[in-house]
Amino acid sequence: MQFKLIINGKTLKGEITIEAVDAAEAEKFFKQYANDNGIDGEWTYDDATKTFTVTE
């Protein structure tokens, strides 16, 4: 399945899409990606669109 991350950071904005087995695997990848890029904010997930959003 495809999952999307929308980044609304103070210094980094954009979107990335990955293939993952389930939402838990996608969330783990996205949170590591955000951590690696210094993004720390509020997370939301929309199951209907398979979209995670992080907002700083």
Rank of each mutant, 00 (worst) to 15 (best):
Q2V: 14
E42H: 09
G41I: 01
A48I: 15
Y33D: 01
F29D: 03
T51N: 12
E56L: 09
G14Y: 07
N8D: 08
T11G: 13
L5N: 01
A48G: 11
Q32R: 13
L5K: 00
M1N: 06
D46Q: 10
Q2G: 07
F29V: 13
I16V: 03
W43G: 00
I7V: 10
K13H: 12
I16T: 10
I6E: 07
N8A: 07
N8Y: 12
M1A: 04
D47W: 06
I6S: 09
D36E: 07
V54K: 00
Y45C: 01
D36Y: 12
Y33T: 04
T44A: 14
G14H: 14
G9L: 05
E27Y: 15
Q2L: 12
A48E: 11
T17N: 05
K13F: 06
D22E: 10
D36K: 13
F29K: 14
L5T: 01
I7S: 03
M1D: 11
V54D: 00
M1W: 07
F30S: 05
T17A: 13
E27N: 09
F3E: 00
V54G: 00
M1Q: 13
F29S: 07
F30W: 02
A26E: 00
I39P: 02
T51C: 03
F29Q: 06
T51D: 02
I6G: 03
E42P: 06
E15P: 04
E42R: 12
V54P: 00
Q2T: 14
K31N: 08
K50G: 08
L12M: 07
D36T: 10
K50C: 03
D40E: 05
F29L: 06
F3T: 01
D47A: 12
F3I: 02
T17K: 15
I16P: 01
G14D: 06
Q32E: 03
F52H: 03
E25M: 07
M1T: 08
D47Y: 07
D36S: 12
F52S: 01
I18W: 10
N37C: 02
F30A: 15
K31A: 07
E42F: 06
N8L: 09
I39M: 15
T11W: 05
E56K: 08
I39A: 10
K10Y: 13
I7M: 08
K4G: 08
K10W: 04
V21R: 06
T11F: 06
